[in-house]
Amino acid sequence: MTTLLLAELSGNALSPATAKTLSAAKDLGGDVHILVVGSDVGSAAETAAKLAGVSKVLVADAPQLAKGLAEEVAALILSIAKNYSAIVAGATAYGKNVLPRVAAKLDVMQISDITKVVSPDTFERPIYAGNAIQTVQSSDATKVITVRTSAFPAASEGGSAAIETVAAPAPVGISTFEKAELSKSDRPELTSAKIIISGGRGMGNGENFTKYIAPIADRLGAAMGASRAAVDAGFVPNDWQVGQTGKVVAPDLYIAVGISGAIQHLAGMKDSKIIVAINKDGEAPIFQVADYGLVADLFQALPELDAELQKAGR
């Protein structure tokens, strides 16, 4: 029984999502092989080999694999799939794009976005935007699974797995990468940040994110997020969006500012350890999930918060 884990890369480096997916893969029992796919990914493979509980790292390095095109990556996975009893990836934009292609060719019903491994064939997964949890049992010979990374802890380091090369199949060649417009930021990524501060429609405009939220994010080393309403209003880019239709996060501390707490936002952050809400409407639904609520005008509260955090030595 061996599980193949499709590594997630961030540029050429291993993404923190991989270590979290690994925890789910280990819960399946059996050996875990990590597949690192791309071009010039030697250092990512070395990082993967150091994760505890990995018995082998496979590296596929070929030009057609460089940009993670689903057609090419799926063809690669299918070329080695027969060696594995389970194939897993993070339920990220990358994993969600690639894995169903693999599942369909294997004639397997993929189990998407699992939040718990109950047993090697039984899993929990959220449905209806997290408003219900389904426990499903798979009868397929190979389990194809995507993992909600925020539901699993990152596997620790301490391993020393062997690194092997795997040959890439001939290019499929029906799609080509044109360009990426990735947001550049020195702040941590939303899905791996320990602290997140998010703004909603109450922020009023994009400049207010820079003026009021950014200083606090800098002080706390936090990632900045937003509600769908703030994204729709054009305040901030879509990749800041936390929620069912955006990113699902579970940081140690989530500060929601000017966010009323629509169901789709709550679905994306309600597993955070501590939730703080600042909103001038004391009846806002966000207060029903917040550990600490402050009913206040955010334009006064945020500068105060910045000052208090500074006093507290942050």
Binding site: V108, M109, I111, T122, P126, I127, G130, N131, A132, I133, Q134, T135, V136, Q137, S138, S139, D140, K270, I275, G282, F287, Q288, V289, A290, D291, Y292, G293, L294, V295, A296, A301, E304, L305, E308
Partner: peptide, 24 residues
């Protein structure tokens, strides 16, 4: 179907915490 749904349950609910009076 290939997947057998064993059960469907409510998600763990989160209780409202406290309201604080000030930023401090």
């Amino acid at each position: 179907p290939r997947l057998k749904v064993l059960k469907t349950s409510e998600p763990a609910s989160r209780k409202a915490g406290v309201k604080v009076g000030s930023v401090a």
